[in-house]
Design a protein around this nucleic acid. Sequence first.
DNA 1: TTTTGTACTTAACCTAGGTTAAGAAAGCAT
DNA 2: ATGCTTTCTTAACCTAGGTTAAGTACAAAA
Lengths: 193, 193
Amino acid sequence: MPLIIDSIEKHVSLTPEEKELFASKLEIQQHKAKTILLSPGEICQYSYFVNSGVLRSFNINDNIVEHVLQFACKGWWIGDMYSLISQKPGNLFIEVLEDAELVLLSKENQEQLYTEIPKLERFFRILIENSLVAHQERLMDNLSLSAEERFDKFCKRYPDLMQKIPQKQIASYIGVTPEFFSKMKSRILKNKI
Amino acid sequence: MPLIIDSIEKHVSLTPEEKELFASKLEIQQHKAKTILLSPGEICQYSYFVNSGVLRSFNINDNIVEHVLQFACKGWWIGDMYSLISQKPGNLFIEVLEDAELVLLSKENQEQLYTEIPKLERFFRILIENSLVAHQERLMDNLSLSAEERFDKFCKRYPDLMQKIPQKQIASYIGVTPEFFSKMKSRILKNKI
DNA sequence: TTTTGTACTTAACCTAGGTTAAGAAAGCAT
DNA sequence: ATGCTTTCTTAACCTAGGTTAAGTACAAAA
């Protein structure tokens, strides 16, 4: 599994033995689109690394409205962080949007690796730092930008996702209804002409 | 500085020598309310731990509107994570809201400590994990809850802050204007009677 | 080929929250 | 006490985005 190793070695370098030890703790799974890997109420046991395909994490509030927390495509990690670290029942769905090959790292194996290969604890520290910064920026964007500006940023940040996923998912990610998203999109088109 | 050590030992235990090494890397500062510790465009050099007092981090968008990213009172860490890890100019102000005693840990010292005392890298990994979970929850709340529900959660989560800071700051944190916040507050009062 | 379901669009109408403006209250310094 | 500044309130009016509902366009089953 070269992709996951490569992505780690962008931040820390591993010896061949360390790579082997690491690889021995991983599990590979193939999943079809629409598969639900995790549902609210369940305890998240894995960090998922995406070799190919697209996943999303989202929740559903009382009104049956979905809200997307994260998309993950090739080279990204996804999971229910809250449930994973607390080992309590989570609030998120994790769903496969496009047929995917995933690398699974169980909570226990991850903890073991932290002590067996401290460089991996560093890697995950850095990974989570970057994720925190991204979430902080998205939070501030939601507080200060209009829907159109958020959409604009989304297009620039995830240009490849636009083709791959239904636009209602993007609407949900930027925090508007599919109807408003559609209205907004046609307004943008008109203004460009 | 017992508070910062205590807060670390809730997650990892340190030997007396490690505590001493750690303490030797810290700097203590007193600051009056209204002091600006960091402004947009500057590069953040420190993680700030709050011994006493209250701080906030916030940004200002084009329209001269402030948005609060975080409050920090006794026992909390604050900083501009984006600028700190990238060592690029940041977007945040960090301001003292109530006279404060702070413990400063410089970026270089923090990196040194990670290798000198790997347990500290673990501590900060856990700290950041928790921060990430909190930001994820706040993000989802902003997508799915009304202003009143967000205010409700804020009151429950930070009951002590209500007395300490001007309510316009709380309005800014939950993402509404001070005027609307005031209207909402009086509506809530009426409904309780 | 028809059916069925899901995604997308459009339009009329609605509301949570924003804007503007003016006054009241409360700190804080002189 | 007296002004000066900042915070808070209220009210009239406004708008971004939500809701409801109906219709269109596909794609997957059957």
